[in-house]
Design a protein around this nucleic acid. Structure first.
Lengths: 333, 333
DNA sequence: TTGTACGCGTTATCAT
DNA sequence: ATGATAACGCGTACAA
């Protein structure tokens, strides 16, 4: 690996000063056209590329952002990450990806590490930290987009981006009620998850408004994966065999629920209707295809990145965005 | 966002020189114990964290690596990325994630961008560039782990990490032959994919060795996703209705094949046996569960990261690693 | 239009 | 054990 050429090398080769080369490269005024051409030719020839570390030190801009997710393996976050990365590429930014693995220590480590690296901005999904810690961290970064978390007091350099979970859950329940279901259960996600709380709230309020009572026995918590959804459904259906519909925290849980129903000989959607959330690719792969609340996750990722760039550039930007999920009725409900 | 404190701030507060603080922080010798203690206390109090950009400029080490994948949304690469990130976290490295989206331009852009950022190392999956370009790029980085690509002439700072695709495909074909199948088709992946070529080779050689002829009509190309697998299977079964087994390039394709069979009323595994490759989570979610060649992708990611660190630290390291897939017999074959 | 001096925050080197 | 000084590669501010 031979030494990288620097501005000084180019300047020497071109017989001009450092600054002239710098200006030529950054297409700034103050360089005659022919000189610029010959410099750029040299740059090409010598394979020069600006050293972003040095540039970062001088300008306090690194052209990189951090993306914190619980687990990039989860299709939900994978899609978002893809959108973020696409958006970053379009604007010549690089993305540091970090998984928290639902581990508070690792989450704080990630924040510290990103801060040390002087990222220009941060997209932070499902922040699991206490409010005080959250505010401390937000203060440290120049720009932040918070996904899946809300903020009482808006900060000018922070935008929150949330799915309208309450409305989504209500749409699902309405649909089930319309199909004649009267014993609708809810497989909730982790209690500390804001989405889980909001979806629960939507579920309960829809039932109440329909004149049905909210029955704690119809609510069952589980981790947001297929295996947990399966187990939770067995528990649920054992406790309340009269259940005729299940709203699941997300699609993975819904699929687990579907498998459990099949294992118990309860056909879907004939005896139990199932609705998921998020519309991950799996939703259309399994049989019967999953009715679910569709959210364009990749687009959300791109939106988040664009908003982040807007904040960084001082462009006016809303303090919060709310994404409306859409009920995609397929075969499971 | 208030100004970050710097070494100078700490030094001033402690009434010592910059270097003493630097030494204390980096736990280098040359600082008395009590002084070190009091400095570290100040560091804590003032919330000081070293600026990695400045440090990077001074040391030419950034404590960050690049990870290039075709698409982080593909479970195959998502698992690998997760392993890489876990490994990086364990050693206090950060990971730049880049998607190439099978786009050569974007792949080159990614390499350029990572080089500008002075990453200490690179994990490069499924490099799609020509040999000459590959060698040029490899020369630019201090350390590289190449996944899914081989190298004629080993380089001391590069390691290749491949799955033994040939052996995997042969195991699959053997298994199918043992089940009595005699018209085994192969749904190949993209032609430019090295894995696809190797799996094809394993498929063909296993047939030949069993005394069966290789029939081009039994080979069908498709993109490595479910929809393409579905379409390709329709084409294939239309052309050769006598097919009694399908080996798919990967699990996504296999699932598409399974759906196509079901759509055509051909039961799996009774009339058509199907085997996939990679064993992504989906393999055990669908019904019937997929028989497939299992590879521990997350572990591969960790291995890649560890090897990369070894290269970077000058630790002796093999020039190539070959991972053996294992046939997991489930319900589809 | 072009060039010079300096600073960004840190580490390496050489003194003390 | 501690400190002064010079890099690292670039951009900003100002001078020519």
């Amino acid at each position: 690996m031979k030494r990288r050429s620097t501005l000084a090398d180019i300047a020497a080769a071109a017989g001009v000063s450092l600054m002239t080369v710098s200006r030529a490269i950054n297409s700034k005024p103050g360089v005659s056209d022919e000189l610029r051409q010959s410099i750029l030719a040299l740059v090409e020839e010598m394979g020069y590329r600006p050293n972003q570390i040095a540039r970062g030190l001088a300008t306090h801009q690194t052209n990189s952002v951090g993306l914190i997710v619980p687990d990039n393996t989860n299709p939900f976050f994978a899609q978002i990450a893809r959108g973020v990365e696409d958006g970053a590429y379009a604007r010549e930014y690089s993305v540091f990806l970090v998984n928290t693995v639902e581990n508070p220590t690792r989450e704080l480590d990630a924040l510290g590490s990103l801060w040390e690296k002087e990222v220009d901005g941060l997209i932070w999904c499902s922040a699991r930290v206490a409010l005080e810690e959250l505010e401390f961290q937000l203060r440290r970064f120049p720009a932040v987009v918070l996904l899946n978390r809300e903020l009482e007091n808006p900060l000018s350099h922070v935008m929150t981006l949330n799915v309208h979970d309450v409305r989504g859950a209500r749409m699902a329940v309405s649909h089930l009620l319309g199909q004649g279901c009267r014993h609708i259960a809810y497989l909730n996600g982790p209690l500390h998850s804001l989405s889980a709380q909001r979806r629960l709230q939507g579920y309960q309020s829809a039932l109440t408004e329909a004149g049905l009572s909210v029955d704690p026995l119809l609510e069952q918590c589980c981790l947001p994966d297929t295996a947990s959804g399966y187990d939770a459904t067995l528990v649920l259906l054992n406790r309340r065999p009269d259940v005729d519909a299940i709203l699941a925290f997300n699609d993975l849980v819904a699929v687990g629920a579907m498998q459990a129903c099949q294992a118990l000989g309860r056909s879907v959607p004939e005896t139990v209707r199932i609705i998921g959330f998020d519309d991950i690719p799996l939703a259309t792969i399994i049989e019967p295809q999953l009715t679910t609340l569709h959210v364009d996750l990749q687009h959300i990722g791109e939106l988040a990145m664009q908003a982040l760039l807007d904040i960084m550039e001082g462009v006016a930007c809303p303090s919060a965005m709310l994404i409306e999920p859409e009920l995609f009725v397929r075969d499971s409900a």
